[in-house]
Amino acid sequence: MTIAASLKKRLKYFDVDVSFSCASKSMMVMIGPSGGGKTTIIRMLAGLTTPDEGQVIFGDEVWFDSARRVNVTPQKRRLGYVFQDYNLFPHLNLLDNAAFAAVDKKEVDGLFDLFKISHLRKRKPHMVSGGERQRCAICQALARHPRLLLLDEPFSALDVITRRGLREELKDLKGKLSCPIIYVTHDINEALFLADEILPVVEGKNDDGWMQRTITREPGTGTTAKGAREPRLSLVY
């Protein structure tokens, strides 16, 4: 199955206007500066934000088509969406959270083993660390057998060590999943480490030169862009 989208949406400071596709078993990383419309694009794929114009096609299903007035609800898209935080329901323990929409509740134990949080199954979300919460959030999304996995900066609230560990777990997981995965980040390391394809998004539009400009000295300006320091930092940890 392939997800193909072409989306337009007018926002306050710029317009989103992108087209992309992502095939099964592949991970597309959407990268770009914060506030550049990446989350809006992901939300349009999930059906939580309605585009002004465009199409979202998943395999042979039309999820959204402005011309034909089709807009499938988020409930029926059957996808997994991991937010930066706030995925977990505070009133449920981790096990019940992951089993919340599970196709087969027995699979949750296996997922918990895979993500090494089995010992925390009876804890409520506020009693575990941010990294453990995000592991559980991924289990929650996977237990639903998603047809498409959306990850919106899932590790950005975590410290670097935890983030690196989770990044590696996610890379391992990628080989086991058969659905397309779209991963949003503003971290170039993460993008290079995980991506099969990279889609740089700046002010709502695809900008293929953005990464190059960010990691090299911009000619004439003499200033080093902020992102340039991050690859060097990666040597430290």
Binding site: A46, F89, F100
Partner: peptide
């Protein structure tokens, strides 16, 4: 209640009614 919790429930397949009963009421 944080709206993102409700959105997560919708993405997980819960109808508005089910979200009311399973997410809003218990929280």
């Amino acid at each position: 209640i944080d709206r993102r919790l409700l959105e997560n429930a919708y993405v997980l397949g819960l109808s508005r009614r089910a979200t009311f009963l399973r997410v809003i009421i218990p929280n």
